Every structure is written in C-alpha cells, then in structure tokens.
Amino acid sequence: WIARINAAVRAYGLNYSTFINGLKKAGIELDRKILADMAVRDPQAFEQVVNKVKEALQV
C-alpha cells in the first residue's frame, strides 16, 4: 500500500511521509489500504484528497 500511495502522490509533487503528515494536519482519517485503492480506482477523488493535504501543508 505504501508503494502505491508513494507513486501516486509523487505525481502531485509530494512524497509519502509528507502526504501522511498532511493527512493528519488536514484531519483526514482514511487508512492506507483505502488510500491505495482510491489512487488506482478513483483518481479524481484521490486528487481531491491530495489537494486538501496540500492546503493543510500550505504547499
């Protein structure tokens, strides 16, 4: 799951650890299995999560 998430978030200019930190700051409580599945099956929803994380990180 970690490898999938890392590959997906790198397309948005983040790395895995920064993304996970941003999830916590944004108050998003999705587990890694769901995030990895979302990255593959629903990229639009995953992009929305990434955008919320970037807002929380102020990137």
Results as ranks from 00 to 15, higher is better:
36 A>F: 11
34 I>N: 11
7 A>I: 09
46 F>V: 01
4 R>H: 05
48 Q>R: 12
35 L>P: 00
50 V>P: 00
33 K>C: 13
45 A>M: 12
43 P>D: 05
28 I>P: 02
1 W>T: 15
32 R>N: 15
42 D>Y: 06
56 A>F: 07
5 I>E: 00
53 V>Y: 01
26 A>K: 03
18 T>I: 11
6 N>H: 03
26 A>H: 03
44 Q>T: 06
30 L>P: 11
20 I>S: 11
11 A>E: 12
6 N>E: 15
36 A>W: 14
47 E>D: 06
36 A>D: 02
47 E>Y: 05
36 A>Q: 02
22 G>A: 04
32 R>E: 15
43 P>N: 06
8 A>V: 03
5 I>H: 00
34 I>S: 09
39 A>P: 07
20 I>F: 09
49 V>E: 03
13 G>Q: 05
5 I>P: 00
56 A>Y: 05
2 I>C: 06
51 N>K: 12
7 A>E: 15
18 T>M: 08
28 I>R: 03
46 F>S: 00
33 K>Y: 08
19 F>L: 04
5 I>Q: 00
13 G>W: 03
46 F>M: 04
43 P>E: 06
38 M>C: 12
30 L>G: 05
48 Q>L: 14
39 A>G: 06
47 E>S: 08
35 L>W: 04
30 L>R: 08
39 A>V: 06
17 S>E: 10
49 V>Y: 07
34 I>F: 11
52 K>L: 07
44 Q>H: 13
58 Q>W: 07
5 I>A: 01
31 D>S: 13
18 T>V: 09
12 Y>H: 07
1 W>F: 14
42 D>L: 14
16 Y>S: 03
41 R>S: 08
23 L>A: 06
57 L>W: 06
7 A>N: 13
53 V>M: 04
16 Y>Q: 02
55 E>K: 11
6 N>A: 12
57 L>T: 09
39 A>K: 03
7 A>W: 04
27 G>S: 09
57 L>I: 13
19 F>V: 01
34 I>D: 06
40 V>L: 07
36 A>Y: 14
53 V>E: 00
26 A>I: 07
50 V>H: 01
44 Q>I: 15
58 Q>F: 07
10 R>V: 11
47 E>H: 05
47 E>M: 07
45 A>G: 11
43 P>Q: 07
45 A>L: 08
18 T>Q: 11
24 K>G: 08
38 M>I: 09
38 M>F: 05
43 P>W: 06
18 T>R: 13
16 Y>L: 04
13 G>L: 02
39 A>D: 04
30 L>Y: 08
6 N>M: 03
7 A>T: 12
54 K>N: 05
26 A>P: 01
29 E>N: 12
8 A>H: 04
12 Y>M: 03
23 L>E: 01
8 A>I: 03
38 M>S: 03
15 N>Y: 06
16 Y>N: 01
45 A>F: 10
13 G>T: 01
59 V>A: 12
6 N>Q: 05
29 E>V: 13
20 I>Y: 04
18 T>S: 13
48 Q>S: 15
21 N>H: 13
17 S>A: 08
52 K>T: 11
53 V>L: 04
15 N>K: 05
18 T>W: 04
19 F>W: 02
49 V>Q: 03
49 V>N: 02
20 I>C: 14
10 R>A: 13
47 E>F: 07
51 N>C: 10
1 W>N: 15
59 V>Q: 15
10 R>H: 11
27 G>L: 06
28 I>G: 05
23 L>K: 01
31 D>T: 14
55 E>C: 10
32 R>S: 14
40 V>Q: 10
29 E>I: 13
19 F>Q: 00
26 A>D: 01
1 W>A: 15
51 N>Q: 06
13 G>K: 04
52 K>N: 10
19 F>N: 00
49 V>A: 03
59 V>Y: 09
7 A>S: 08
14 L>S: 01
58 Q>Y: 08
11 A>H: 08
39 A>T: 15
54 K>G: 03
14 L>R: 00
1 W>Y: 15
17 S>I: 14
31 D>V: 15
32 R>D: 15
13 G>M: 03
45 A>P: 02
22 G>Q: 03
40 V>F: 09
34 I>E: 08
15 N>R: 04
27 G>V: 06
16 Y>D: 02
